[in-house]
């Protein structure tokens, strides 16, 4: 039982991170029907900028006196940086291709992913970038179960971000505009919603969430590396599809499911086949519910 609970905690932490990344995929997909392969790189870039900012704060000496402020500032800086990056990437690599076939944009995204990860390698070096380790050290122990402060921090921050995103999308005017654009671009243009602005905004928000996930990842695993975006990117994309692509609640649930399946697969059956279990669940769900768990929410003009 203790073993089960411990694995459950592990699963929630990992799943939360996947969910944050998956949101970016699903939101972008919702508005322009593009699998943004470069999204994993936004996640990695967020991790890097977080590491750079934290190291800088430690270097000037603010870290010891105001750790919480520094951490918050790092989060904000990384999220802003990634939003800035994503908006530019969208303008350069995706916007000119919006009228062409979706595969062209997909390829451009793949090229962007290769370009960004190698750009990070060249500017930041091939070695891992280390996160300062003093933050949130320590853990609660309940018998065999242990929960680190970091895990609590990550899960609660993830929850806060998810709730605020939900509020943004479902309770504000901007959110309504985003949903409208996702459902029908022509109609939303008719009611004076600038689709370019909304698309940029969607990219910015998605990348910002990925950046937050990147910093949490760095804190949790101790370091970041230029190629770290790729595998979580694929997992998060699976999570987005599992939940029903374009569906924000679906992405959260999908992320948690993929995280759990991976942890329980590794913990109870076999570590080397854990990705197989995740994909089998994905295929199984899609076989019986071809639109994902929560159903999709996109503008599909072809049907």
């Amino acid at each position: 039982m203790e073993y089960f609970i411990q694995q459950l905690i592990n699963g929630i932490t990992l799943g939360g991170m996947y969910a944050l990344i998956a949101l970016g995929y699903t939101m972008v997909y919702g508005v322009i029907q593009l699998i943004n392969f470069a999204h994993g790189e936004f996640f990695a870039a967020g991790g890097y900028v977080g590491a750079i900012a934290l190291a800088y704060f430690a270097g000037v000496g603010y870290m010891d006196s105001h750790p919480v402020i520094c951490l918050t500032a790092s989060f904000l800086i990384a999220m802003a940086y990634c939003a800035y990056l994503a908006v530019g990437v969208e303008k350069i690599a995706y916007k000119p291709l919006r009228k062409n076939s979706r595969l062209a944009a997909l390829l451009s995204a793949l090229g962007m992913s290769i370009f960004l990860s190698n750009g990070m390698m060249l500017t930041q070096g091939v070695y891992d970038k280390v996160y300062p380790g003093e933050l949130f050290q320590g853990r609660f122990d309940f018998g065999m179960i242990s929960i680190s402060y970091l895990q609590i921090m990550i899960v609660s921050l993830t929850a806060i971000l998810l709730v605020s995103l939900n509020l943004l999308v479902f309770k504000t005017k901007i959110g309504m505009a985003m949903r409208a654009t996702a459902q029908d671009k022509t109609m939303s243009a008719l009611v004076a919603i600038g689709s370019n602005r909304i698309i940029s905004l969607t990219f910015a928000i998605g990348a910002g969430l990925a950046a937050a996930a990147g910093i949490m990842y760095g804190l949790y695993y101790g370091s970041v590396k230029y190629d770290m975006g790729f595998i979580p990117g694929i997992k998060a994309f699976s999570a987005a599809v599992l939940g029903g692509i374009g569906n924000i609640t679906g992405a959260m649930i999908g992320g948690l499911i993929i995280g759990m399946v991976e942890i329980f697969g590794a913990g109870y059956i076999s570590g080397e086949y854990k990705d197989v279990f995740a994909f089998i669940i994905l295929i199984g769900v899609l076989y019986f519910k071809p639109n994902g768990i929560m159903g999709e929410n996109i503008d599909d003009t072809r049907v």
Partner: peptide, 11 residues
Amino acid sequence: LVFGATMIIMM
């Protein structure tokens, strides 16, 4: 890096 950039440009 160059390869990725070339892919984008060609597209």
